[in-house]
Design a protein around this nucleic acid. Structure first.
Length: 199
DNA sequence: AACTGGATCCCCT
DNA sequence: GGGGATCCAGTTA
């Protein structure tokens, strides 16, 4: 079933990032359903987190959607080539987020292979934050879209992931965040071949 | 109006 | 394990 809006409006993005493991992310773009099981996430908090785009209340054309009530998509372009997909959490104006970093493909695999331009189902189909967006057809056009919509949404299909199968570690690619770069806010399902390759 | 650098990925060595 | 691709938002002026 589709995840209710209350799930996203809880106050702790770290807890939500952990809870999102084992949930499913789907898109329906041009009528085609694609998606899979979330196996890697990262939390970003508006306070005491220099890595977060909304740190110290930074409010720009890129970050403004972060200040909406939890349960909307925050998609942005990185390095001129990749779109990253985030879920905005917490209540309005709190501006917390969870980045989706790895997906185990389950739905619409032929379409995802086409979009990625790869021949077979392997890690580089959806294992990485810039890859899964391409596979699911997520672009900045989805900026601000509600996660209760029929374009992009999450589902709980049962089978919760126990703590013993989760590894927490520092986030990736945020050296500029100083001491906050060491926070263990990256969560992975241990042993999943669909997590991102970065350390 | 110009400049800088990034929540990445892939290929080369 | 190191560097280049590639472009736009953010910052500075």
């Amino acid at each position: 079933m589709k995840i209710p809006i209350e799930f996203y409006r809880r106050p702790d993005p770290v807890q939500i990032a952990r809870d999102l493991l084992g949930k499913y992310l789907f898109t329906r773009i041009d009528g085609v359903l694609t998606g899979g099981r979330i196996v890697e996430t990262e939390a970003y908090a508006h306070i005491n987190d220099q890595a977060c785009h909304s740190h110290l209340g930074r409010y720009t054309s890129r970050t403004q959607v972060m200040y909406e009530p939890g349960g909307v998509a925050y998609a942005y372009l990185i390095y001129g080539r990749y779109t990253l997909f985030n879920i905005i959490t917490n209540e309005a104006s709190k501006a917390d987020a969870v980045l989706i970093r790895g997906l185990e493909p389950t739905e619409g695999i032929p379409e995802m292979l086409l979009r990625r331009g790869v021949a077979s189902v392997q890690r580089n189909l959806t294992g990485g934050p810039g890859l899964l967006t391409q596979a699911l057809g997520i672009t900045t056009a989805l900026y601000g879209t509600s996660l209760t919509s029929d374009v992009v949404w999450l589902e709980d299909r049962g089978a919760p992931v126990p703590d013993t199968e989760i590894r927490a570690s520092p986030r990736v690619g945020i050296d500029y965040a100083g001491t906050d770069a060491a926070l263990p806010w990256r969560f992975r399902i241990i042993g999943s071949p669909w997590t991102s390759p970065a350390k």
